[in-house]
Protein backbone atom coordinates (compact mmCIF):
# COMPACT_ATOMS: atom_id res chain seq x y z
CA UNK A 1 0.00 0.00 0.00
CA UNK A 2 2.75 2.43 0.91
CA UNK A 3 4.62 1.50 -2.18
CA UNK A 4 1.42 2.06 -4.11
CA UNK A 5 0.99 5.55 -2.67
CA UNK A 6 4.61 6.36 -3.42
CA UNK A 7 4.06 5.25 -7.02
CA UNK A 8 0.98 7.43 -7.24
CA UNK A 9 2.99 10.45 -6.13
CA UNK A 10 5.77 9.69 -8.60
CA UNK A 11 3.20 9.04 -11.31
CA UNK A 12 1.61 12.43 -10.75
CA UNK A 13 4.98 14.14 -11.08
CA UNK A 14 5.89 12.41 -14.33
CA UNK A 15 2.32 12.69 -15.59
CA UNK A 16 2.34 16.45 -14.98
CA UNK A 17 5.36 16.81 -17.22
CA UNK A 18 3.87 14.66 -19.97
CA UNK A 19 0.61 16.58 -19.69
CA UNK A 20 2.37 19.95 -20.07
CA UNK A 21 4.17 18.76 -23.21
CA UNK A 22 1.10 16.98 -24.56
CA UNK A 23 -0.91 20.21 -24.39
CA UNK A 24 1.40 21.82 -26.92
CA UNK A 25 1.11 18.88 -29.30
CA UNK A 26 -2.62 18.73 -29.01
CA UNK A 27 -3.25 22.46 -29.46
CA UNK A 28 -1.04 22.69 -32.54
CA UNK A 29 -2.57 19.54 -33.98
CA UNK A 30 -6.03 20.84 -33.24
CA UNK A 31 -5.41 24.05 -35.09
CA UNK A 32 -3.25 23.11 -38.09
CA UNK A 33 -3.38 19.28 -38.07
CA UNK A 34 0.38 18.99 -37.80
CA UNK A 35 2.35 16.64 -35.57
CA UNK A 36 4.84 19.24 -34.43
CA UNK A 37 7.90 17.07 -33.96
CA UNK A 38 9.97 20.09 -32.99
CA UNK A 39 7.83 20.56 -29.90
CA UNK A 40 9.89 18.08 -27.89
CA UNK A 41 12.99 20.14 -28.63
CA UNK A 42 11.35 23.30 -27.43
CA UNK A 43 10.96 21.43 -24.16
CA UNK A 44 14.65 20.57 -24.25
CA UNK A 45 15.51 24.22 -24.83
CA UNK A 46 13.39 25.12 -21.82
CA UNK A 47 15.47 22.78 -19.72
CA UNK A 48 18.71 24.39 -20.95
CA UNK A 49 17.46 27.94 -20.40
CA UNK A 50 16.53 26.96 -16.86
CA UNK A 51 19.94 25.41 -16.39
CA UNK A 52 21.84 28.50 -17.52
CA UNK A 53 19.62 30.84 -15.53
CA UNK A 54 20.11 28.91 -12.34
CA UNK A 55 23.74 27.91 -12.75
CA UNK A 56 25.32 30.85 -14.56
CA UNK A 57 23.11 33.73 -13.47
CA UNK A 58 22.19 32.46 -10.02
CA UNK A 59 18.55 33.14 -10.63
CA UNK A 60 15.90 31.61 -8.38
CA UNK A 61 13.49 28.95 -9.50
CA UNK A 62 10.55 31.20 -10.31
CA UNK A 63 12.44 33.77 -12.37
CA UNK A 64 14.16 30.92 -14.20
CA UNK A 65 10.80 29.31 -14.88
CA UNK A 66 9.47 32.55 -16.34
CA UNK A 67 12.62 33.03 -18.35
CA UNK A 68 12.40 29.51 -19.79
CA UNK A 69 8.78 30.09 -20.74
CA UNK A 70 9.56 33.42 -22.41
CA UNK A 71 12.48 32.02 -24.42
CA UNK A 72 10.49 28.96 -25.48
CA UNK A 73 7.56 31.12 -26.53
CA UNK A 74 9.89 33.07 -28.78
CA UNK A 75 11.43 29.91 -30.21
CA UNK A 76 8.01 28.38 -30.84
CA UNK A 77 6.68 31.44 -32.63
CA UNK A 78 9.84 31.75 -34.72
CA UNK A 79 9.59 28.10 -35.77
CA UNK A 80 6.03 28.62 -36.87
CA UNK A 81 6.79 31.81 -38.79
CA UNK A 82 9.92 30.58 -40.54
CA UNK A 83 9.33 26.90 -41.17
CA UNK A 84 5.66 26.04 -40.98
CA UNK A 85 3.89 29.07 -42.36
CA UNK A 86 5.21 28.71 -45.93
CA UNK A 87 3.88 25.15 -45.93
CA UNK A 88 0.40 25.81 -44.66
CA UNK A 89 -1.17 24.73 -47.93
CA UNK A 90 1.29 21.93 -48.72
CA UNK A 91 0.57 18.28 -48.13
CA UNK A 92 0.50 17.03 -44.56
CA UNK A 93 3.50 14.81 -45.16
CA UNK A 94 5.63 17.71 -46.43
CA UNK A 95 4.73 19.67 -43.33
CA UNK A 96 5.63 16.68 -41.20
CA UNK A 97 9.04 16.33 -42.82
CA UNK A 98 9.61 20.02 -42.21
CA UNK A 99 8.74 19.52 -38.56
CA UNK A 100 11.26 16.70 -38.40
CA UNK A 101 13.84 18.95 -40.05
CA UNK A 102 13.24 21.68 -37.49
CA UNK A 103 13.49 19.10 -34.74
CA UNK A 104 16.87 17.88 -35.98
CA UNK A 105 18.00 21.46 -36.39
CA UNK A 106 17.18 22.33 -32.80
CA UNK A 107 18.72 19.14 -31.42
CA UNK A 108 21.98 19.34 -33.28
CA UNK A 109 22.12 23.13 -33.20
CA UNK A 110 21.89 22.96 -29.42
CA UNK A 111 24.46 20.19 -29.42
CA UNK A 112 26.81 22.41 -31.41
CA UNK A 113 26.62 25.15 -28.82
CA UNK A 114 26.45 23.25 -25.55
CA UNK A 115 28.12 19.96 -26.63
CA UNK A 116 26.55 16.54 -26.31
CA UNK A 117 27.59 16.00 -22.71
CA UNK A 118 25.02 15.40 -20.05
CA UNK A 119 24.72 18.35 -17.68
CA UNK A 120 23.44 18.31 -14.14
CA UNK A 121 21.17 20.92 -12.68
CA UNK A 122 22.55 22.74 -9.65
CA UNK A 123 21.38 21.04 -6.45
CA UNK A 124 18.30 22.59 -4.94
CA UNK A 125 18.79 24.42 -1.70
CA UNK A 126 16.66 25.66 1.16
CA UNK A 127 12.97 25.54 0.56
CA UNK A 128 13.29 23.63 -2.71
CA UNK A 129 15.22 20.78 -1.12
CA UNK A 130 12.67 20.03 1.58
CA UNK A 131 10.64 16.89 1.67
CA UNK A 132 8.02 15.57 4.03
CA UNK A 133 6.49 12.28 4.96
CA UNK A 134 2.87 11.26 4.98
CA UNK A 135 2.89 7.93 6.76
CA UNK A 136 5.76 6.22 5.02
CA UNK A 137 5.25 7.99 1.75
CA UNK A 138 7.88 10.59 0.92
CA UNK A 139 6.80 13.68 -0.95
CA UNK A 140 9.55 16.04 -2.03
CA UNK A 141 9.03 19.75 -2.37
CA UNK A 142 10.00 19.40 -6.03
CA UNK A 143 7.06 17.08 -6.57
CA UNK A 144 4.75 19.54 -4.88
CA UNK A 145 6.10 22.32 -7.06
CA UNK A 146 5.71 20.28 -10.24
CA UNK A 147 2.11 19.48 -9.38
CA UNK A 148 1.36 23.05 -8.31
CA UNK A 149 2.95 24.70 -11.35
CA UNK A 150 1.14 22.27 -13.64
CA UNK A 151 -2.24 22.87 -12.05
CA UNK A 152 -1.78 26.65 -12.13
CA UNK A 153 -0.74 26.60 -15.79
CA UNK A 154 -3.64 24.34 -16.72
CA UNK A 155 -6.17 26.54 -14.97
CA UNK A 156 -4.65 29.53 -16.72
CA UNK A 157 -4.85 27.73 -20.06
CA UNK A 158 -8.47 26.78 -19.52
CA UNK A 159 -9.21 30.39 -18.67
CA UNK A 160 -7.50 31.66 -21.82
CA UNK A 161 -9.18 29.13 -24.10
CA UNK A 162 -12.63 29.37 -22.59
CA UNK A 163 -12.98 32.99 -21.50
CA UNK A 164 -10.85 35.26 -23.61
CA UNK A 165 -11.28 36.62 -27.11
CA UNK A 166 -8.13 34.98 -28.39
CA UNK A 167 -9.24 31.68 -26.87
CA UNK A 168 -12.49 31.94 -28.75
CA UNK A 169 -10.52 32.68 -31.91
CA UNK A 170 -8.41 29.57 -31.30
CA UNK A 171 -11.47 27.40 -30.98
CA UNK A 172 -12.99 28.93 -34.08
CA UNK A 173 -9.85 28.43 -36.19
CA UNK A 174 -9.57 24.81 -35.08
CA UNK A 175 -13.15 24.22 -36.17
CA UNK A 176 -12.89 25.80 -39.59
CA UNK A 177 -9.99 27.97 -40.65
CA UNK A 178 -11.67 29.46 -43.72
CA UNK A 179 -14.92 30.25 -41.96
CA UNK A 180 -13.01 31.84 -39.08
CA UNK A 181 -11.11 34.02 -41.54
CA UNK A 182 -14.37 35.12 -43.15
CA UNK A 183 -15.66 36.08 -39.71
CA UNK A 184 -12.76 38.51 -39.40
CA UNK A 185 -10.50 36.43 -37.21
CA UNK A 186 -6.78 36.94 -37.83
CA UNK A 187 -5.90 33.32 -38.51
CA UNK A 188 -2.13 33.87 -38.71
CA UNK A 189 -2.04 35.62 -35.36
CA UNK A 190 -4.19 32.94 -33.80
CA UNK A 191 -1.93 30.15 -35.02
CA UNK A 192 1.14 32.01 -33.75
CA UNK A 193 -0.55 32.47 -30.42
CA UNK A 194 -1.28 28.76 -30.21
CA UNK A 195 2.37 27.99 -30.82
CA UNK A 196 3.32 30.57 -28.21
CA UNK A 197 1.16 29.04 -25.50
CA UNK A 198 2.14 25.48 -26.32
CA UNK A 199 5.83 26.37 -26.32
CA UNK A 200 5.56 28.23 -23.02
CA UNK A 201 4.05 25.13 -21.43
CA UNK A 202 6.81 22.97 -22.93
CA UNK A 203 9.41 25.39 -21.55
CA UNK A 204 7.90 25.05 -18.10
CA UNK A 205 7.96 21.27 -18.44
CA UNK A 206 11.62 21.45 -19.44
CA UNK A 207 12.77 23.29 -16.37
CA UNK A 208 10.58 21.17 -14.10
CA UNK A 209 12.20 18.03 -15.50
CA UNK A 210 15.62 19.56 -14.94
CA UNK A 211 14.82 20.28 -11.34
CA UNK A 212 13.24 16.87 -10.79
CA UNK A 213 15.62 14.52 -12.62
CA UNK A 214 18.71 16.78 -12.56
CA UNK A 215 20.35 15.65 -15.77
CA UNK A 216 19.72 17.16 -19.19
CA UNK A 217 21.15 16.68 -22.69
CA UNK A 218 20.38 17.93 -26.21
CA UNK A 219 18.48 14.76 -27.19
CA UNK A 220 16.49 14.55 -23.98
CA UNK A 221 13.28 15.64 -25.69
CA UNK A 222 12.84 12.77 -28.13
CA UNK A 223 11.43 10.04 -25.93
CA UNK A 224 9.35 12.21 -23.57
CA UNK A 225 8.14 14.00 -26.69
CA UNK A 226 6.95 10.75 -28.23
CA UNK A 227 5.28 9.72 -25.03
CA UNK A 228 3.63 13.09 -24.60
CA UNK A 229 2.32 12.78 -28.12
CA UNK A 230 1.07 9.32 -27.25
CA UNK A 231 -0.66 10.92 -24.28
CA UNK A 232 -2.30 13.48 -26.54
CA UNK A 233 -3.54 10.79 -28.92
CA UNK A 234 -4.64 8.67 -26.00
CA UNK A 235 -6.80 11.42 -24.57
CA UNK A 236 -8.12 12.45 -27.98
CA UNK A 237 -5.92 14.63 -30.11
CA UNK A 238 -6.98 18.25 -30.41
CA UNK A 239 -8.73 18.14 -27.04
CA UNK A 240 -7.13 20.03 -24.16
CA UNK A 241 -8.70 17.98 -21.34
CA UNK A 242 -7.73 14.86 -23.29
CA UNK A 243 -4.07 15.84 -23.25
CA UNK A 244 -4.18 16.43 -19.50
CA UNK A 245 -5.86 13.12 -18.71
CA UNK A 246 -3.69 11.29 -21.24
CA UNK A 247 -0.54 12.79 -19.73
CA UNK A 248 -1.40 11.60 -16.25
CA UNK A 249 -2.47 8.14 -17.39
CA UNK A 250 0.68 7.58 -19.46
CA UNK A 251 2.89 8.96 -16.69
CA UNK A 252 1.26 6.78 -14.07
CA UNK A 253 1.41 3.68 -16.26
CA UNK A 254 5.08 4.16 -16.84
CA UNK A 255 5.85 4.65 -13.17
CA UNK A 256 3.81 1.62 -12.16
CA UNK A 257 5.34 -0.69 -14.76
CA UNK A 258 8.81 0.45 -13.69
CA UNK A 259 7.95 0.34 -10.01
CA UNK A 260 6.87 -3.27 -10.16
CA UNK A 261 10.10 -4.51 -11.63
CA UNK A 262 9.46 -4.31 -15.35
CA UNK A 263 11.34 -1.10 -16.05
CA UNK A 264 12.86 -2.49 -19.27
CA UNK A 265 9.40 -2.90 -20.70
CA UNK A 266 7.96 0.44 -19.62
CA UNK A 267 8.22 2.01 -23.07
CA UNK A 268 6.75 -1.07 -24.73
CA UNK A 269 3.78 -0.98 -22.36
CA UNK A 270 3.13 2.69 -23.09
CA UNK A 271 3.12 2.08 -26.83
CA UNK A 272 1.06 -1.09 -26.49
CA UNK A 273 -1.57 0.92 -24.62
CA UNK A 274 -1.48 3.48 -27.41
CA UNK A 275 -2.06 0.88 -30.11
CA UNK A 276 -4.81 -0.71 -28.07
CA UNK A 277 -6.70 2.54 -27.59
CA UNK A 278 -6.28 3.42 -31.25
CA UNK A 279 -7.78 0.10 -32.25
CA UNK A 280 -10.68 0.28 -29.83
CA UNK A 281 -11.37 3.99 -30.11
CA UNK A 282 -9.21 5.71 -32.75
CA UNK A 283 -10.36 9.17 -31.75
CA UNK A 284 -8.99 8.70 -28.24
CA UNK A 285 -10.55 8.61 -24.81
CA UNK A 286 -12.54 11.82 -25.08
CA UNK A 287 -12.72 12.11 -28.85
CA UNK A 288 -15.76 11.64 -31.00
CA UNK A 289 -15.58 9.40 -34.05
CA UNK A 290 -16.03 11.26 -37.27
CA UNK A 291 -17.10 9.50 -40.42
CA UNK A 292 -16.40 10.87 -43.81
CA UNK A 293 -19.50 12.18 -45.51
CA UNK A 294 -20.31 10.41 -48.74
Amino acid sequence: MEQFLQQVINGISLGSIYALIALGYTMVYGIIKLINFAHCDVYMIGAYVGYFCMRNFNMGFLPSLLMAMVVCTTVGVLIEKIAYKPLRNATRIAALITAIGVSLFLEYGTMFFVKATVRTYPPMTGFMAKSFKVGNTVITMQQVIIAAVTVILMVLLQFIVKKTRIGKAMRAVSQDKDAAELMGINVDATISFTFAIGSALAGAAGILVGVYYNSINPLMGILPGLKAFVAAVFGGIGLIPGAMIGGYIIGATEVFVAGYGRSMYKDAVVFAILILILLVKPSGLLGRDKKEKV
Binding site: Y29, L226, D267, A268, F271, L279, P282
Partner: peptide, 25 residues
Protein backbone atom coordinates in the same frame (compact mmCIF):
# COMPACT_ATOMS: atom_id res chain seq x y z
CA UNK B 1 -4.15 -6.47 -40.11
CA UNK B 2 -5.37 -4.63 -37.02
CA UNK B 3 -3.66 -1.25 -37.49
CA UNK B 4 -4.39 -0.61 -41.15
CA UNK B 5 -7.98 0.17 -40.23
CA UNK B 6 -6.60 3.43 -38.90
CA UNK B 7 -6.13 6.41 -41.15
CA UNK B 8 -3.54 9.11 -41.70
CA UNK B 9 -1.74 10.35 -38.62
CA UNK B 10 -3.33 7.70 -36.43
CA UNK B 11 -1.82 4.95 -38.52
CA UNK B 12 1.52 6.78 -38.49
CA UNK B 13 1.55 6.92 -34.74
CA UNK B 14 0.41 3.31 -34.36
CA UNK B 15 3.19 2.06 -36.65
CA UNK B 16 5.66 4.22 -34.75
CA UNK B 17 4.49 2.61 -31.52
CA UNK B 18 4.75 -0.82 -33.10
CA UNK B 19 8.38 -0.20 -34.12
CA UNK B 20 9.20 1.02 -30.62
CA UNK B 21 7.68 -2.15 -29.19
CA UNK B 22 9.76 -4.30 -31.54
CA UNK B 23 12.86 -2.39 -30.44
CA UNK B 24 11.93 -2.91 -26.81
CA UNK B 25 11.41 -6.61 -27.33
Amino acid sequence: LPTLRLRGDYLAIATLGMAEIIKNV
